[in-house]
Amino acid sequence: MDRGLVIGGVIFAFLLAMPVLLPIVGAEYLTGLLIKAMLLAIAAISLDLIIGHGGMVSLGHAAFIGVGAYTTAIGLQSGIEEIFVLLAITLGATGAIALVTGILALRTSGVYFLMITLAFGQMIYFTLTSLAAYGGDDGLTLWSLATLFGSDIVQDGRGLFFFVFAALLLTWIGVWRVSQSRFGRVLRAARDNPQRAEVMGYPVARYQLIAYVIAACIAGVSGLLLVQYAEFVSPSIAAWQRSGDLIVAIVLGGLGSRNGALLGAFFIVIMEEFLSSFLHEWRLIYGPLLVLLVLFAKGGLNDLLQPTSREAS
């Protein structure tokens, strides 16, 4: 049996047991932290589809979390409360914006793509800060949250935990299946050697665009769930530093691997919690840690757990 699948299965089983285990050890306050980690993991897994599998280094991914969150917030403010309706609107909005920016950004590749996604991300960020009716810079507190078929079960506590858990599980399975499908194979071929893929008869940019839109939509979903969790939305979730965090997560975890983005996201959230518990200025450690990671470590956490995984993917 595939080791990646086993490790992933263990992680999910562990997560699933948390709502039962945490109250026993008196650590219920960690539920929020876990939800935060799962939301980051959803976005990171989606980014891994374009960076890890697609080889397109996007530095604007957090902007789609922002689009998803704001679409949801605006929907809630306008009285739409059913979570699946909000989901449909969120997917539509993030998908449309990703389609337009993706078409433009994919006219280029490599480092130009990086700069352009960064710039579009920043454009979205500034657009969100100038939405005066929805809080502008300061953000917006939401007094009503989404409901699941009219019930408030997905608004906090275990209900929300399981809902986010389900979303993460679907993302984890879905993105991996996509990456191993015919479509994903073309995407990975284009990462390895775009000219070769083109000469094989594939319109590479179209495949990359589809991947970009899929990834943006998933990030949008994590934005929706973030609103539901935080009961608050502000432009800072779309800042380019958040895109940087996502990249850190997937590189830390191991690019294009089954569990890399998942592990990386959890690692970051836990590390932040841990470092900041004894040093308020924890970023003084975190920054140099990243530099050292790049200079001396390769392959990420996933490789540590799975020394033979490189060949397989």
Binding site: I51, V57, L59, L114, Q241, G244, I247, V248, V251, L255, R283, L284, Y286, G287, P288, L289, L290, V291, L293, V294, L295
Partner: peptide
């Protein structure tokens, strides 16, 4: 990607 990550670390620091 490595360059992005390392320089991002320097910014944070």
């Amino acid at each position: 990607l490595d360059q992005v990550l390392a320089t991002f670390g320097i910014i944070i620091f």
